[in-house]
Write a protein that binds this DNA or RNA. Structure first.
Lengths: 227, 227
DNA sequence: GCAAAAGTGTTAGTCATACACCCATGT
DNA sequence: ACATGGGTGTATGACTAACACTTTTGC
C-alpha cells in the first residue's frame, strides 16, 4: 500500500430538488464561514473517517429538512485539484427529491439560512457548485423519462393536473391532457382515492396516490416506466 | 475548514470492456501484492495529490493498454469504511470501452498479468470489485440503448452483422435482421465503405464505419440515438 | 350565471413487428 | 454443387398524436 498516505479530505454536497408553485426548485444555504463566506452554496459537509458516504449524505439531508426516507442518489464525484481553495477536497455529490409540503413543517424549527431557489433563478454559487447543479438537472431530466421519480416531488395525494404540470416542467414541453391521462392511467400505477381537492373556484379534482408496491412488482417482471 | 484534516486516501479503478469472439469481456489483472495478493482485480491505482480524477483514470488505462482517446465515464464512487482492509480508501470507479483489436497490438509489450475475462465467467474479485463490475454492466446496458456506444467496442470498420451481434449480446435479446438494418441505416449515421470483408466462406459483407461528426451534428439539433 | 379548471373518445397517421427467399463467395 | 452467411420488401397490428366540448364547483 505504498501510495496510501493521506492525501485529501472528503465531503458530500447535496442537490435537493423540490417542486412548488409550479416550479422546480433547489435548496441552497448561505455560507456562514470562509471560504466563500456569504455566497450561496449547496448544503454539504465533511465526511467523518468512520462514516459511509451514503450515511453522510443522508444525515446532511436530515439535519437540514428533518426528513428521512427520501429518494437519494449518488450523482458524481468532483475532484479537481483546485476546486476548493484551501487544499484538496474531493466532493461526492448526491441528489435528492423531496416533497416541499412535508419539508415546510420542519423548516421553521431550523435556524439555518436555507432557501428554495427556482432553478431558473439560481445565483452564482460557491466553488464548483454551479456545475454540480447543472449535472443534477441533466440527470434528473434523463431519469424522469424512465423512472417514476416525479411522484417523489409531489405530495402524497395529488391530482392528474398537478402531475402533468410537473412533467411539463421537467420535460420542458407541453403535453396533451387527454393523451397524458390515457398513458399514465393505462400503466395502472395510480390509486384513485375516494377524495377530491377542496377549496378551488372550479370543479373539484380527483386525488390519486402512487402505488409503490405495484410498481415494484411490475418492475421485477420487466416492466419499464416510460413517460 | 474545521473538518479538513486528512482523512482518507483516494484511488481509481477501471472497468474496461471489450467485445471479442462474440462475447463481452472485461480486462482484469492479477494482484502482485498484498492485500488480496494473487486475486483477480480491476486495474486501478492511487490518485496523486495533484492529479485530477479523470487524468488518473486515463493514465491507468493508457499504462495498461497503450491506448488514449478512449470512451470513458465516471461510474460511481465506493467509499464504505471497510471496503479496503488496510485503512480507509475511497475509490472512484470509471468504465471504458475499447476496441480489442487495437489493444492486442500493445498487449504483448506489457509485462503485467492482464487478461480478458468473458463477463459470464468472472472469477471472484478482490475488495468490492465484483459490485463495481455489476454496476458497470447495468450502466452499460442502460446506456447502450440511447447512446451510440456500441461502436466504441467494434473495430473501425465493421459489418452490420457484427453490429447486430454486439447489440444482441448487450441487450440480451435476439433481433430481427431486416428490422435491425432498416432501423440502423435509417438513422443515417453509418458510412457505407467501398470495401468488403474478406476471407470468409460465404458472400463478402459490406463494411461500414460510424460517422461521429454527423452524430454530433444531429445530437446538437435534438436527435437522440435509440436502438 | 359566469369563470375556471376537470373530465372524457375518436380518428388518422406513423412506427414496430413478423416473416422467407435469392445471392455471392469459398471449399 | 453445396454450405454459409449476406442481403432485401411487404403487410398487419400497435401505438402516438391531434383535436373540442360538456361538467362541476365557487364566487
Amino acid at each position: 500500500m505504498s501510495h496510501s498516505a493521506c492525501i485529501s479530505s472528503l465531503s458530500v454536497d447535496s442537490i435537493i430538488f423540490g417542486f412548488d408553485e409550479g416550479e422546480l426548485k433547489i435548496l441552497l444555504i448561505k455560507r456562514a464561514q470562509a471560504p466563500e463566506k456569504g455566497k450561496w452554496a449547496l448544503p454539504g459537509g465533511f465526511v467523518g473517517n468512520d462514516e459511509n458516504l451514503d450515511d453522510a449524505a443522508k444525515s446532511i439531508l436530515e439535519e437540514l429538512t428533518g426528513l428521512s426516507d427520501i429518494y437519494m442518489e449518488q450523482l458524481h464525484t468532483f475532484g479537481d485539484v483546485k476546486r476548493y481553495p484551501l487544499g484538496r477536497v474531493i466532493s461526492i455529490a448526491y441528489y435528492s427529491l423531496i416533497k416541499v409540503n412535508d419539508y415546510n413543517i420542519k423548516a421553521a424549527e431550523n435556524a439555518k439560512e436555507a432557501r428554495w431557489h427556482p432553478i431558473s433563478k439560481i445565483p452564482k454559487l460557491a466553488f464548483d457548485h454551479t456545475r454540480m447543479v447543472e449535472m443534477a438537472l441533466e440527470k434528473l431530466k434523463i431519469n424522469v423519462k424512465n423512472h417514476p421519480i416525479g411522484f417523489e416531488l409531489l405530495p402524497e395525494k395529488f391530482t392528474l393536473t398537478q402531475l402533468q404540470n410537473l412533467y411539463e416542467v421537467l420535460l420542458n414541453t407541453a403535453l396533451d391532457k387527454r393523451n397524458f391521462r390515457k398513458k399514465i392511467l393505462s400503466m395502472d400505477l395510480l390509486n384513485k382515492l375516494e377524495e377530491y381537492e377542496k377549496g378551488e373556484a372550479h370543479r373539484a379534482a380527483q386525488l390519486f396516490n402512487f402505488n409503490t408496491t405495484k410498481y415494484e412488482q411490475l418492475k421485477s417482471k420487466g416492466f419499464v416506466f416510460e413517460i
